[in-house]
Each structure stands twice: as structure tokens, then as C-alpha cells.
Design a protein around this nucleic acid. Structure first.
Length: 434
RNA sequence: GUCCGGAUAGUGUAGUGGCCUAUCAUGAAAGCCUGUCGAGCUUUCGACCCGGGUCCGAAUCCCGGUCCGGGCGCCA
């Protein structure tokens, strides 16, 4: 049996006279002597419970006076329209129960009268999320996921799961976390890339996966984590331009969905969300280098990966979402398809927000011989890729896809300073708990 | 990994060698108060990251450690 009849958000002054049962947390108790107020908080907001000493049952008043902040309480009472109350109503209680008393002192202050550092907040994340502005962010993240899934379903894309425990660090590059797998060593997967490509060979035609990826990199910045949620898509018989269109539609669609369906949460965050217009600007890698020449400082050579300074400069110059396309083949992974007439340039692209990279994708190499060649060029051993390469020998359609970082999408959408703010229980270089 | 900065009540802070028996806010405890909405007022409680050193004297200076923040690198 559900212990509440209404959320705070369900009550309005027009509901005056009805009996309600609310359940939530004791946000604040203000005892003025002859009158006392209990502010009850649930996920939708606040409701004021008013106790007039002369009119309320003395036992109820005594209970309320004994409530410690952040205890879980259940309140049964009658709604009364009251212009003096916040939101124009208050609840006159007939019964108040303490379901779970909170200890004091609290590890942080959910009423936000005192600031709190990120580290302290993450140590007591369960209490941090009781703060409406934090909760609102995660509710918006859920809405983003819902919007993305709907976009994928609408496009006839099948949701799949690929293994997170894998045999070997075959992709090269990124460091993987080794784990013990019975009598063998295994690794946590850094990306579903190889698996989604194999599913193209399987004839699944269009797949998406939303799941965790693990990277054992030492990176220690406000935009990197060692465990992240990746939104991966792979489409057969599509080229890089096709999947870029899908990507920009998915991203701007998520903004639109949030702006239309999360008005309360955006209000809590004080955000006026601007939906980015499609199509996003396309800039080739070579054009980006040209643009970056207009700034003082270190000059980039063609073939260098863009450094952080250049990335920031481009973001400031362009000022909105954009695609970086036509990268040098040498700095993109082996599965990225080079242009036939100009093999030093490839069909890889990055989706950029002015603050950082959000996604990267490409048209993939689907020709077995070329793929083996490319693997060798990257100084990797094709033998280690046999489970993957096998799928390319028995009929592999051309295909393209991308991977999008969920937390980076949410972080840039909500203008959060630190990616840790966009993850409920983040995993970084140092944090393994909670 | 590297460079720079930091660590003071539960939380957030002030304090650059003696005036620190350590500031302020929030909180907790007790009391007063009939319209609070960061309520107000009175009283009380609660802290210098760890180890070594310099000095008559260290929260403050030096060395080492641990932890934290920021920049960069790394990031298929």
C-alpha cells in the first residue's frame, strides 16, 4: 500500500477541503510558539504543514516539535487555501508520523543555507540528491534518455546489449581495466565499437546501445571519468553524412524534449534552454586549422590532434554545436574509412559543443583487406582481432555510426561545471566510493 | 603523470609568528515568540589533516606524507 495519496506537486489551492496524505522529508521546522510550520519535501517540491497551537491536537504538535531535520515523515491532513502560505495553500494536519528519524548533525545542508564542496557532496550523495536542483538534473537526464530512445525507435533502430567483460585489449590506444575472470585475465570494455560493427555483419541493420564504458586512463579533469555511459549507434548501408544527420537530430531533439517536458525542473535550475538549430555547422579539420591560425600562440601542424587550447578557441569562435569532419586518417582509429581518392583524409567526424567534444563517429571500413591493412598501419596485430575480422569475410555491408557521451550531453545542456555533477555516483581517478 | 593552489567545529568560512582562551554563518541543545517562508531574540555546545623540524613562542615558517581543487598531458 502506497503511503501517500498525493505528491506536493499535486496540491493546489483549488483542492481546498480535501483530505490528503503526504510522505516525504522534513525539510525545515519553524516553531513560532503559538504557530508552527513543518515544510515537507518530496520529489516534486514542498508543502507547508501548519500547526496552530490552539487548534491542533497537542499530540500532533508534540510529534512535530520532536522531528529532526531530514527525517522521513507522513502527514495526513486537510488542504486549506491560504494566501499567506507559499504556493497559496497549506495542510492542516490531523496526524503526523515519523517513519524514519534522521540523525544530527547532517553531513550537508539540503536547505542550501550553507555552501558545500563537491567532494563533501559526493561523499553524502544520497543527501545531496535531496536538494531539488540536484534531483532536477538527474530527472532531466532521464528525459534525455527517453527522448533519444524514442528517436532511435522512430528510426527503426534495434536496442542491443554487448558484453562489458572482454577477452583482450584489442582496440589499442586506451588503457583497459584488467579483471580476474575465473582462471583467466579479462578486461572491462572501453567501447562497444567492435561488437556493433559485428552486428552489421549479422544483418541487424541498425542497432543502438546505451551502456557503460570503462577507461583506465589517468585523465583527471572536469570532463573525464573512468566509467561513463555511452550512447552508441551503428547503421548499415549508411555513410558518415547520414549518421551525422541522425546525430544532430537526436541531440537537438533531446533539447526540444527537455524544454517541453521538464519545465518544472528547468525552473528549479533557473535555466532557459535554447534548442540548437539543425543542421549543425560542418567544419573540416583543415578549415579548423585555418581558423585557429587567427589566434596567437602555438601553431598546429596538419596531422596533429587538436590540443585543448585550439579546441577552446574553436568553441569560442563558433559559439554553437558544430561538426568537425574530414580528419587526417593518421589520428583516427583503424576502423575509420579513408576517402578513396585521398586516403590521408578519412570519413571520421566529431560532434563538438563549444565547451568540449560530445560524440565521435565515422563511416567505417567494411572491406576485409583494407581493414587488415589499416590495423597493421596502426602497429596492431590482426591476429588479436580475429573474432572481429571474421565478421568481415562473409558479407559485410558498408556502415557508419557514432558514440555519444551521455554525461557530456547533460553537462553541456545544463551548463554544469563538472562532469561529476552529471553522474549520480561518479568513478574517477580517485573515487571508488560510494 | 605533471604544474599551480589548498586542508580550521557536522557544513561553509575568517585568521601571514605572541593581541587565538581561534572569527562569522549555518547546525545542535535549552528557553521566549500566532503567519513563518534563509523567521527573530537569549544562553550553551562544537574545529586548527598527519609526522618531523625551526623558534622563548607555530593554525601561521620549513621538510615529508595523506587528501582535495584547478590547468595541461593522456583520452580507440
Amino acid at each position: 500500500m502506497i503511503l501517500r495519496t498525493h505528491y506536493s506537486g499535486d496540491i493546489t489551492p483549488e483542492k481546498a477541503g480535501i483530505e490528503v496524505t503526504l510522505a516525504g522529508w522534513a525539510h525545515e521546522i519553524r516553531d513560532l510558539g503559538g504557530i508552527a510550520f513543518l515544510v515537507l519535501r518530496d520529489r516534486e517540491g514542498f508543502a507547508q504543514i501548519t500547526l496552530l497551537k490552539k487548534r491542533v491536537d497537542p499530540k500532533v504538535l508534540e510529534t512535530v516539535r520532536s522531528i529532526s531535520r531530514e527525517s522521513v515523515v507522513q502527514v495526513r491532513g486537510t488542504v486549506k487555501a491560504e494566501p499567506k502560505a507559499p504556493r497559496g495553500f497549506e495542510v492542516l494536519p490531523s496526524d503526523v508520523k515519523i517513519l524514519s528519524a534522521a540523525e544530527a548533525p547532517l553531513p550537508l545542508d539540503p536547505t542550501e543555507k550553507v555552501d558545500c564542496e563537491l567532494d563533501t557532496r559526493l561523499d553524502a550523495r544520497f543527501m545531496d540528491i535531496r536538494r531539488p536542483c540536484i534531483l532536477a538534473g538527474f530527472e532531466i537526464e532521464s528525459a534525455v534518455l527517453r527522448s533519444l530512445r524514442e528517436c532511435f525507435y522512430k528510426n527503426g533502430i534495434t536496442e542491443v546489449f554487448t558484453p562489458k567483460i572482454v577477452a583482450a585489449a584489442t582496440e589499442g590506444g586506451t588503457d583497459l581495466f584488467p579483471i580476474s575472470y575465473f582462471e583467466r585475465e579479462a578486461f572491462l570494455n572501453q567501447s562497444p565499437q567492435l561488437y556493433k560493427q559485428m552486428l552489421m555483419g549479422a544483418g541487424m541493420d541498425k542497432v543502438f546501445e546505451i551502456g557503460p564504458i570503462f577507461r583506465a586512463e589517468e585523465h583527471d579533469t572536469r570532463r573525464h571519468l573512468n566509467e561513463a555511459i555511452s550512447i552508441d549507434v551503428e547503421i548499415s548501408f549508411a555513410d558518415d553524412k547520414d549518421v551525422m544527420e541522425l546525430l544532430e537530430g537526436a541531440v537537438s531533439g533531446a533539447y526540444k524534449y527537455v524544454s517541453e517536458n521538464c519545465t518544472r525542473q528547468l525552473g528549479v535550475l533557473g535555466l532557459d534552454l535554447q534548442v540548437p538549430k539543425v543542421p549543425f555547422r560542418r567544419i573540416t579539420y583543415t578549415e579548423a586549422l585555418e581558423l585557429a591560425k587567427g589566434r596567437p600562440g602555438v601553431e598546429m601542424k596538419w596531422g596533429d590532434d587538436l590540443d585543448r587550447e585550439t579546441e577552446k578557441f574553436l568553441g569560442e569562435t563558433i559559439g554553437e554545436h558544430y561538426f568537425l569532419t574530414d580528419w587526417p586518417s593518421s589520428i583516427k582509429p583503424y576502423y575509420t574509412l579513408p576517402y578513396e581518392d585521398k586516403p590521408e583524409v578519412c570519413r571520421g567526424f566529431d560532434l563538438m559543443h563549444p565547451r568540449m567534444e560530445l560524440a565521435s563517429g565515422a563511416q567505417r571500413v567494411h572491406d576485409y583487406k583494407l581493414l587488415v591493412e589499416r590495423i597493421k598501419e596502426k602497429c596492431l596485430d590482426p591476429a588479436g582481432f580475429e573474432f572481429y575480422l571474421k565478421a568481415f569475410r562473409y558479407g559485410m555491408p558498408s556502415h557508419s555510426g557514432w558514440g555519444l557521451g551521455l554525461s557530456r550531453l547533460v553537462m553541456t545542456m545544463l551548463n554544469l561545471e563538472n562532469i561529476r555533477d552529471a553522474v549520480i555516483f561518479p568513478r574517477d581517478r580517485r573515487r571508488l566510493v560510494p
